[in-house]
């Protein structure tokens, strides 16, 4: 069984919700990746999304754009990230999911990329500029290697299409909570809860919500309707500002409040 599946089965057994932080690899230098992953695991992360910096991140808002620029200026490359994950995999038990735009993978060479991330112990991949129509380019090789392709659905995805995407059934379904790019929000679409409920109803795999989620309140509200949250810009900011206590607090309170057992 894949580590992602195991993780969600355990969460289900404990009747609790997943907190999945997103961090930008190479922000602060690749050398702090291990320390950060270990810390996030300790603070209760169910899994972690490791972002790969890209020159043209069209799905990302200013916070993640800036983190990406800092990482690129540090000389971070996809090869370097995969190599680093291979090196530190043993010290982290939770699933590691790579989030990367397609072009760095394409330049790496798709077959070589899949081989290398499998060897490195990466559990899943999120490719935000690759809708299901285009996944043929990499999906067969990921499946063969046992690396889960995490797919996205959004507020503009028609229900019928949500069903089809969810039915492909790898890992979890990533439900985008905003009409827009990443970055913290004060408010969400009035239809969000109904939408999450609808997605949850049709999805045979766990449903995680992400994009724009930053406050404790938002997290608790949203996880009433799904299995967990992905928190990106907020975590990226807290790490960049070295506000580790605030991060620990955010994550541990979430864990307490969502634990129904």
């Amino acid at each position: 069984m894949n580590r992602i599946e195991q993780t969600f089965q355990a969460l289900k057994k404990d009747d609790t919700k997943a907190f999945v932080p997103y961090i930008m690899a190479g922000d602060g230098g690749l050398d702090c990746l291990e320390e950060r992953l270990v810390l996030l695991e300790k603070f209760g992360a169910a899994a972690v999304e490791v972002g790969v910096p890209f020159s043209d991140p069209v799905a990302d808002g200013p916070t993640i754009q800036q983190a990406g620029i800092r990482a690129l200026n540090n000389g971070t490359t996809l090869k370097g990230i995969v190599g680093k994950i291979a090196e530190i995999r043993k010290s982290v038990k939770i699933p590691i999911i790579l989030m990367t735009y397609l072009n760095p993978i394409y330049a790496y060479g798709i077959t070589k990329f899949v081989q290398d991330i499998q060897k490195a112990g990466v559990d899943g991949c999120i490719i935000p500029d690759m809708p299901v129509e285009e996944e043929e380019i990499i999906e067969p090789e990921l499946t063969e290697a046992g690396v889960e392709l995490i797919r996205l659905v959004t507020l503009t995805t028609p229900l019928e299409r949500i069903k089809q995407i969810a039915a492909k059934g790898d890992g979890f379904l990533y439900t985008v909570t905003v009409k827009g790019i990443t970055g913290t929000r004060n408010e969400f679409d009035g239809n969000l809860n109904a939408y999450l409920k609808a997605v949850k109803e049709v999805s045979p795999i766990p449903v995680l919500a992400g994009f724009g989620i930053s406050t404790q309140e938002q997290m608790l509200d949203i996880t009433k309707y799904c299995d967990g949250v992905v928190v990106g810009s907020k975590i990226v900011n807290l790490l960049a500002e070295n506000k580790l206590e605030e991060m620990e607090n955010l994550m541990s309170v979430f864990k307490q409040k969502t634990n129904m057992a």
Partner: peptide
């Protein structure tokens, strides 16, 4: 019909834009 000129082209966009 999938927008390909040989291997080139396609629809490599975030899911939010697929409907549009």
């Amino acid at each position: 019909e999938t927008g390909r000129f040989g291997k080139f082209g396609g629809r490599f966009v975030p899911e939010t834009l697929m409907k549009a």
